[in-house]
């Protein structure tokens, strides 16, 4: 069991859910323990861009007794440990967060973009993403999509 001191803060959210704040180094250990406690359902992974850091929010759910827990942790260098080996649903969740927010999940075997083409520049949900630069999508001879800044090349 992870010692209480290693959980930085335990609070109750506005919606009444239990929130555990944990350091990045202790994160994986906490997740393993929560999985053993019966949290069999990884509901949602959210990355929040606070400009100086990226906050990762994990919503875990225990189907048996309908227990909910929210785990929050921070990363300063956009790298975070992956939890695919604990919950398969983390596969697409992490791919989506990599696509949209640019958080690299260490230990994910197949971390590609989920929605956007692989050659897309930037991660759209970042606060410093420039919305005025339009990117166009076209298809190469292999049938794969690629992104380009050249409007003549796009659809």
């Amino acid at each position: 069991m992870i010692s209480v001191a290693e959980i930085l803060e335990e609070t109750k959210g506005k919606d009444g859910r239990r929130i555990l704040k944990v350091d990045k180094d202790n994160f994986l250990q906490l997740m393993e323990e929560l999985k053993e406690q019966g949290f069999d359902h990884l509901s949602l992974i959210t990355a929040v861009d606070w400009r100086d850091r990226i906050e990762l929010v994990y919503h875990l759910h225990n189907m048996e007794n309908d227990n909910y827990v929210v785990v929050k942790s921070d990363t300063l260098n956009n790298v975070f440990p992956s939890v695919v080996h604990l919950w398969t649903s983390a596969d697409w969740e992490e791919r989506e967060q990599w696509d949209m927010m640019g958080v690299w999940f260490d230990g994910h075997a197949n971390l590609r973009r989920l929605f956007l083409p692989e050659s897309w520049t930037g991660h759209p949900l970042r606060k410093n993403y420039d919305l005025s630069k339009v990117q166009y999508i076209n298809m190469d001879d292999e049938g794969n999509d690629y992104a380009t800044f050249d409007p003549g090349d796009g659809w």
Binding site: G13, K14, D15, L44, V48
Partner: peptide, 20 residues
């Protein structure tokens, strides 16, 4: 202000909305 997660049962399954 703050963050809220609400889940509802849509016709396809559990729809969750998380707002910060």
């Amino acid at each position: 202000e703050g963050d809220v997660y609400a889940r509802t049962e849509s016709s396809k399954g559990e729809l969750g909305v998380y707002i910060v």
